[in-house]
């Protein structure tokens, strides 16, 4: 893969597009390959907006800290044509309730719930959970994708919601919340240990790429939410029960 590592988010140098991803609500995503043959799902900033780019980047960086199963990611930074790239996961379907007993990384799905609570992502519908048979239909690996709608990409709104949790209205049906709880609380514990000092460089990197000025507001709000992660995640899980 032709990448140049700056800090955490790899930068891809050249892309070649291969057609649309045939899924609704994907922000005009296209299949794309880089010079090294790396396969990506590409979302152009001109289609999704800089806020979604920012939300994707911060969401991905935090996800990795919490062991949320997210695809590899990168950015393409050509002048006037910036894109967010999410590694294409081969052989996937979308979430369905019948798959719940077959998911092998159920704690990863729990961690996904914690991530959503922290970055205020209310967009975890069935299309944003990929299910990959690994190696067969009885053993399914879940992947959390698309954090572009998370409020963390809208700094002023995010800062005004310091103790709020996302609405579970769009949450995928049939997620086994009782089975996700352990993973969610484990991820919350990891979030609690993330200090502002650790969060600031992540937010700075994402904001630099997105040319967003409000680094301090985002990092402080995120740090505050991480410090209170146990309560936030508890609250979010509780709200999902009442759906």
């Amino acid at each position: 893969m032709a990448t140049l590592l700056t800090s955490e988010i790899p930068i891809v140098q050249a892309l070649s597009d291969h057609g649309d991803v045939p899924v609704e609500h994907t922000g005009n995503a296209v299949y794309s390959t880089d010079g090294g043959g790396g396969r990506w799902i590409r979302k152009r900033e001109c289609n999704i907006g800089v806020e979604e780019m920012l939300a994707e980047m911060i969401g991905w960086l935090i996800a990795r800290r919490l062991d949320v199963p997210v695809p590899d990611a990168a950015v393409f930074l050509a002048q006037g044509d910036r894109s967010w790239l999410s590694a294409q996961i081969p052989n996937v379907v979308h979430w369905a309730p019948s798959q719940a007993p077959l998911v092998t990384n159920i704690d990863g799905l729990g961690a996904m719930m914690a991530l959503d609570a922290l970055i205020m992502n209310a967009d975890r519908h069935a299309r944003n959970i990929l299910i990959q048979p690994s190696p067969d239909e009885l053993h399914l690996r879940a992947w959390a994708i698309d954090h572009g709608a998370a409020m963390v990409g809208w700094p002023a709104d995010f800062a005004s919601q310091r103790t709020a949790v996302p609405s579970p209205r769009n949450l995928a049906r049939g997620l086994p919340m009782d089975l996700l709880r352990d993973g969610a609380m484990e991820a919350a514990e990891k979030a609690t240990s993330l200090s502002h000092r650790e969060i600031l460089p992540m937010v700075t990197e994402a904001c630099t790429i997105a040319a967003e000025q409000q680094v301090q507001i985002i990092s402080e709000t995120l740090a505050e939410r991480c410090a209170g992660a146990q309560a936030l995640v508890e609250e979010y899980l509780e709200q999902t029960r009442g759906r």
């Binding site: 081969p90 052989n91 996937v92 379907v93 299910i131 990959q132 048979p133 690994s134 190696p135 067969d136 239909e137």
Partner: peptide, 11 residues
């Protein structure tokens, strides 16, 4: 690959 076939079955 087996996973491709498994995906088709899931579809």
């Amino acid at each position: 690959q087996a996973p491709v076939h498994a995906t088709m079955q899931m579809v």
